[in-house]
Design a protein around this nucleic acid. Structure first.
Lengths: 208, 208
DNA sequence: GTCTATAGACGGATAGAC
DNA sequence: GTCTATCCGTCTATAGAC
């Protein structure tokens, strides 16, 4: 996939994203990236300075969009359906779904996120927490009003369960394999819908 | 951590497990492993043959136990509480909890599992699927009878959600940080309990 | 901005002495 | 079983021509 109408820098980003998704950060070499992007090996250091910085840029590009969309969707959900649980959960899940269906490698990015949680050494982890930690906190605030009687500790646990389930399912780690007759978009759509329903019931369970 | 009363082979396994948990497989070098285990660099290839085989052995040592315990707990749950959902979920969750609380590094292993989902290249993935894929399938069979009206597709989705949430929570990837006054064992115990309750409600939700 | 060439470090694996 | 020494490949990063 050479994408000749994109700049060298963008071609590197796309190629890196796909390879990181397939192999992880550590086992992806800059040589693989530049070979797939069809650019010279030296271009990475010219445009990004270092491999670590390339990793951060791959993240920033997608994560900024997804976080912005999640927060916007949250605001719309709270205004349009005050006190309702499922719209808030949808505001959390659906931007991830949309990302996974994006044409230009967004599907790969969901797997990149999944890897980041597992693979992150402290530097990447700190980067993620500093830059995007406010997003789940905003959702927690909104959810407090929807599930009366749910303590803060249980609320936070359940948000973590939702994140884990979302990451795992969108990254196709589980048992479920897409059936031959179902398109990838359709498959993910059904996953998102199933997850929202599952989580809505879970959030409404009596506190433990 | 030198553990002088363990054999060279075991010291390598313990050291590898901890480093894999912290850094992942690809970014952990055999030199780091042997240095931490305080054994000679050549010992890895003498005892394990290759790095890939060392990775497999790290898994086998813990996974055999955990799978056996899950299946045994499943059988006990089905016999003692036929048709009940929560005991089956507990049989899935609690062996992971026990592993996470194990004295000799089992806690690290939970994070190794989380990494494996994300990082496994095809060889590790195939190894895990071949060796341990029957476990979630047994749970799926048992769950069919507990949630009448739930289609197979939704059942499998929900099992995947449970696995994701479990892995994520036990590996401490989420928002929740253990409060200062709570012991690690107690913290995980509460997580497991919260997860079982969350998932039980989720499994009983109407199909989507 | 893009290339070639290479420096310099580190990786897994092995040979062979003890 | 354990060691030293080493082979050989790959990696990131950079210098310098164009």
């Amino acid at each position: 996939m050479t994408l000749p109408h994109f700049s060298t820098k963008d071609r590197i980003l796309y190629a890196a994203e796909e390879l990181f998704a397939q192999q992880g950060f550590a086992s992806t070499s800059l040589r693989q990236v530049t070979s797939r992007a069809d650019v010279n090996i030296a271009a990475v250091n010219y445009h990004f300075g270092s491999k670590e910085n390339l990793v951060n840029e791959v993240f920033r590009r997608r994560m900024d969009d997804m976080s912005r969309e999640r927060l916007a969707a949250l605001q719309r959900a709270v205004e349009a359906h005050p006190g309702q649980l499922e719209p808030i959960l949808a505001a959390f899940v659906e931007p991830a779904l949309a990302m996974a269906q994006d044409r230009h490698g967004g599907g790969a990015f969901i797997r990149v996120i999944a890897r980041a949680y597992a693979e992150s050494n402290d530097s990447l982890r700190k980067f993620l927490s500093d830059q995007y930690g406010h997003v789940p906190r905003e959702f927690a605030k909104a959810l407090v009003g929807c599930v009366p009687g749910l303590g803060k500790e249980d609320l936070y646990w359940r948000l973590d369960f939702l994140s884990g389930a979302l990451t795992y399912a969108m990254a196709d780690f589980g048992l479920i394999k897409r059936p031959a007759g179902v398109s990838e978009a359709n498959h993910r759509q059904r996953a998102a819908k199933a997850l929202i329903r599952f989580a809505a019931a879970g959030f409404q369970a009596d506190a433990s």
